[in-house]
Amino acid sequence: MIDPKQTHVTHQWKHDRPLIACRFDPQGRFVFTTSEDNSVQRWELGSGTKVVMKGHDSWPRSIAFTPDGGHVITGGADDLIWWPVATEKPEQVRRVVAHKGWIRTMSVSPDGKLLATGANDNLVKVWNITDGSLVKEFAGHGKDVYSTLFHAGGEFLLSGDLAGQVHQWEIASGKLVRKFDAKQLHTYNGGQRVDFGGVRTLSMSPDGKHLACGGLYKATNPLGSVHEPLVLVFEWESQKLVQSHVGEGLKGVVWRAIFHEEEFLCGTSGGTSGGFLLFWKTAEPKDFHRFKLPDLTRDLDIHPDRTQLATTHSDSHVRISRMTPKKS
């Protein structure tokens, strides 16, 4: 039985260098992570056995999978790379020069045929996930694209940027349908003369009624990491802002937030307060439960079984937490 208040760490495995992103493969056999040493790691969930995959010449920041679990795709400041998921020693099978700049986000369409990428060149691109060919390019963001998400219906693609703007694109026509204004997630600090924040994560509720946009606010000192986590929840149809989820007393940023079928939103906040898993109900702005992890978090994913969470940490660990009571 899933109960966020019972969340506890079940496994932790350490790499040689700080970790960045994490994703479970669709079949739930592995968790993949990326590291500041430019490598990708595959961790077998049963044993914790690690396989290191080398090929990027910069930090990989994003991970996606073909739905059949055959391939994992990683994107960094250089290229997109396709790797086999389960072979003993995965070697890259395809490499695509995708963007001018850092690939920060990837997502896969509900039918598993398309891969969306967003990058520092302010562009969103959609690729044929099977052969890596470019299908469509979406231009219109004024700043770096930080997040992408396919709508469950498959008709639309969402992308969020540094300025706190979420664009809803019609995939077939390439037209911008509308924008969600999440500018609370953006700060321009005139003293430091920096833009900061942005839409770091997007998630749709399972019933399709709500869109969550996560990041940070109250950035009084962006360069000194004085800011607080925030998730804005919009009603999908009306675009009305219906909730602002905060992490009261915490300094940090919501790196990722994911709606769960059990009608809560799970997010991770990393920052000077440390690393936390935060759990919110849509009706309440404050988290109904928070679980402190041993170190700052940098990414979050949820296992296909919907009970396990993976988090990556600056102390080089990937941690697996379970939202069920501890086994005695």
Partner: peptide
């Protein structure tokens, strides 16, 4: 200004 990037050094250097 400003390069005093104790936080998110790479994002800020990219921007600046």
């Amino acid at each position: 200004s400003n390069y005093d990037t104790h936080n998110e050094n790479f994002n800020f250097h990219l921007e600046q």
